[in-house]
């Protein structure tokens, strides 16, 4: 089963950027999925069971925190590695992030190399 990565952000250019950053892993046969709101993200996670999710915190229809909480605490999908994305200058509620079970958080603008490295590590490539 080829690994899957889900990118969730309401800003098109961020989704495009992360996709572009992950071009190398895509060449290794990883499937890239995208969503622009929390509701759709949750549905895709349940149906596709991605290995890695980049999840923006500020989303329409359901916040990144809520999506994460649902996935980790209610659905107990432990195998989904969730990276919460938060804008610099935004007070990131680190404690809340821990409570909802996020694996790690990353500031925007993110370091593309750091992101690619994380993906490769999590996906075992």
């Amino acid at each position: 089963m080829p690994p899957k990565v889900l990118i969730v952000d309401d800003e098109t250019f961020i989704r495009l950027l992360i996709e572009q950053t992950l071009e190398e892993v895509e060449n290794e046969g990883v499937t890239i999925l995208t969503a622009d709101n929390g509701q759709d993200a949750l549905e895709i996670i349940q149906s596709e069971k991605p290995d890695l999710v980049f999840l923006d915190v500020m989303l329409p229809r359901m916040s990144g925190f809520e999506v994460c909480e649902t996935v980790k605490r209610q659905l107990k999908m432990e195998d989904v590695y969730i990276v919460l994305l938060t804008a610099k200058g935004q007070e990131f509620d680190r404690q809340r992030g821990e409570e909802v079970g996020a694996n790690i958080y990353m500031n925007k603008p993110f370091d593309p190399d750091e992101l690619a490295e994380l993906a490769q590590r999590v996906l075992g490539i």
Binding site: F13, L16, L17, E19, Q20, T21, P109, F110, D111, P112
Partner: peptide, 12 residues
């Protein structure tokens, strides 16, 4: 997208 990524690196 590739150009955007370059600009993003600069921004970072």
């Amino acid at each position: 997208a590739a150009e955007l990524l370059d600009r993003y690196r600069e921004l970072h």
